[in-house]
């Protein structure tokens, strides 16, 4: 039993590395896309800085559309697009593309809810001082909501860890894939336990770091 598990250590490390890589890159890219999308949702909504009802309604619908597709379907459905972006439809890099498309609209919604927590009075005060919409976004909305945005990104990260478990379908590897292909399909319970424990560990660390960073930023 013990020996059996030892044989798989390198495999486990490789899978952990793949998971962290997939989650890290996806999180970065999805935030890069989701943050501006979230800002657009807030400023174009009714009563927003650049209110535009038709645009907001259309845009909000598109975001919802992407959010309603189950990840496993999205993974397969956008294979041609993935091939176009990373040149291949299998492998860790290929898994990143659907992960980004899956989580960017989600992050947009999370950022939206964080920005909406900023008191309207504070925005009004900035307007009364003659701030431009861009100044209000950059110097009021984002700094005031940053602590909340970080907490929400932590939630998104944990969601990504979960979604990345399905990356095995496109040969993306990772801990989830290892748990399914060895632990589940080959009845290697040890591998199953080890990967699940590692995933629990990653989630715990992510949440702890997120909480800490959020608190740190709130109190500068």
């Amino acid at each position: 039993m013990q020996v059996n598990l030892m044989e798989f250590w390198p495999r486990i490390w490789e899978a952990t590395y793949q998971t962290l890589l997939m989650v890290g890159i996806s999180l970065f890219a999805a935030t890069l896309i989701g943050l501006p999308l979230g800002i657009i949702l807030v400023v174009t909504r009714h009563g927003g800085l650049l209110e535009n009802k038709p645009f907001f309604n259309g845009f909000s619908t598109v975001v919802n559309f992407f959010r309603s597709i189950p990840f496993i379907i999205l993974l397969v459905a956008i294979l041609p697009f993935t091939r176009l972006i990373v040149g291949s439809s299998i492998g860790t890099a290929a898994a990143v593309v659907p992960l980004v498309i899956f989580s960017a609209p989600y992050i947009a919604r999370l950022v939206e809810s964080s920005l909406l927590e900023v008191k309207p009075g504070v925005i009004e005060a900035a307007e009364s001082m003659g701030a431009t919409p861009w100044q209000i976004v950059r110097r009021v909305y984002i700094p005031e909501a940053l602590s909340s945005i970080i907490l929400n990104l932590t939630i998104a990260t944990i969601g990504l860890v979960g979604a990345s478990a399905m990356a095995g379908f496109v040969g993306g590897g990772g801990l989830g894939d290892l748990a399914i292909s060895y632990g589940y399909q080959r009845f290697e319970t040890d591998i199953m336990i080890a990967t699940v424990l590692l995933l629990v560990f990653i989630v715990q660390i992510t949440q702890t770091v997120g909480n800490f960073a959020s608190k740190k930023i709130r109190r500068q």
Partner: peptide, 19 residues
């Protein structure tokens, strides 16, 4: 916006930047 800089405003709930 230029003219607004010549008109200060204070509020019931202060509306300060908490961060």
């Amino acid at each position: 916006r230029k003219v607004r800089k010549r008109i200060g405003m204070i509020f019931q709930h202060f509306n300060l930047l908490e961060s």
